[in-house]
Each structure stands twice: as C-alpha cells, then as structure tokens.
Design a binder for these strands. Sequence first.
DNA 1: AGCTTTTATCGTATATTGACGATTAACGAT
DNA 2: ATCGTTAATCGTCAATATACGATAAAAGCT
Lengths: 108, 108
Amino acid sequence: MKTVAPARRKLHHVSAPGIVRADEHTARLAKALGHPARVAIVRMLVRRGECVCGAIVEGLPLSQATVSQHLKVLKEAGLIHGEIDGPRVCYCINPEAVNRLKSLLDQL
Amino acid sequence: MKTVAPARRKLHHVSAPGIVRADEHTARLAKALGHPARVAIVRMLVRRGECVCGAIVEGLPLSQATVSQHLKVLKEAGLIHGEIDGPRVCYCINPEAVNRLKSLLDQL
DNA sequence: AGCTTTTATCGTATATTGACGATTAACGAT
DNA sequence: ATCGTTAATCGTCAATATACGATAAAAGCT
C-alpha cells in the first residue's frame, strides 16, 4: 500500500530559488535604464517635471524617430507616461516605478 | 578691426546637456542588471556573501557557458569580482558599484 | 605524466536593440 | 478642405545580446 503523498505545498526546502519574479521585475526596469539616452530622458523629466516630446528631441543628439523609440521603451517599462495635449505629447515621470526600482535594488 | 573672440570656455549657456558622462555610467550599471539571471546572481552573492561559480551554475536553469557569460558581464560592469581559489573561482559583490548605482539613481 | 574537476572561451545560431529616413496619423489653424 | 506641426510607426540595416555544445585552460591529485 502506497503512502499517500502529502499535497504539494511550497517546497521551502529546495533552496534553489533560481530566477524569481522579482528578479524579472528588477531586470525589466533596469534594462529600460540601460541606455544613456534613456537615462538622460528620465533625468530631464525629473528636473523639469514634465516635458513635451519635441523638447526632449531637441535636448538629445538623436533623430526624432530614435527618441520616440526610447520613449516607447521607457513607457512600456512603466517608468514614464505621456498624455496627448493637442498636437503634442507631454511626458512625465512615474515616480512609483522609479521608487519601485530603488526599493528593489535596496532589497536586491 | 575685429574684436578678439574670448577664449572658448565651458559654454554654460547652451542649456542642452544632452547625454552626460553620468548618464553613461548609470546606463552601464543598469544594463548589467538588465537581465533576470544577472539580478539573480547578484542577489545570490548578496545573500551568501560569496559564491563559487559552480554553486551559481547549480542555482540557475542555464548552462555553465551561459552563466559564465553573465558573470563576465557583471564583472566588466564592475558589479562583482571573482578571485581564483585553487581550481575554482570565488565570486563576490563589489558593494561600491552597487552603492554607486543606488546613488546615481537617487540623484537621477 | 596522466586524470579529474572547474571555469573560461570559441564558434555559431537566433533574437533583440539601436539608429535612421520615410511615411502615416492626429490635431489646430487658416 | 488643405496646410503645417507634432509625434508615432514602418521598413531596414548593422550591431549587440543571449543561449548552447564543444573545446581549451588551469589547478589539484595519484
């Protein structure tokens, strides 16, 4: 007669957490900041509070298309968000995401 | 008679700092953490203080070659360093680099 | 010297990123 | 309705990143 296997629980003992959810989260945010242009954009938004896309393009030695791509990356990572304002788009920081990254790094 | 042009100084007025050195530094560190496996490695090293390469490989669902590459990336970014210990290599965190990233993010 | 263990590197294949010009889409103004 | 402005997207190219098996390199052991 086989012993009844206990319901599978959390396996606390198997030591190897390997790559956990938080790691992926941290990596996603870090990766978004993994390009100088994107760091510069974030810095600009922190300094000026908010910023129209065109102003960001002017501040960088990159084409409008390239800057737009970088903005998309930052937006998809949740680090910034932009809202349409007439014919232009106004971007600003998402402070929660920035703080989340900071606290993830603190726990590390 | 032409006026003598003043020696070219720092051009403080041209507003556009664009991408500065610190941005590149921040990006380099952030990029190194821009992969879940590398975050997991860093976390492991922080928790256990130091770690032989083989133990890191065991803890991750990746081949030895791949892990070795990730270690190289972290090493080149200065986030970790490894010293040879007999036939194996012992890795540990470089706390200065981690703190540098944290403070760069704080200034942002 | 030969063998084992451990880690780095090579070679390679695929995927993603970064950059740009050109085009499209959205909106205000004329 | 057309025009000009602003920003996103498309298409494309070169470069980098990711992953792996295979091989090399280094060190200890017999």
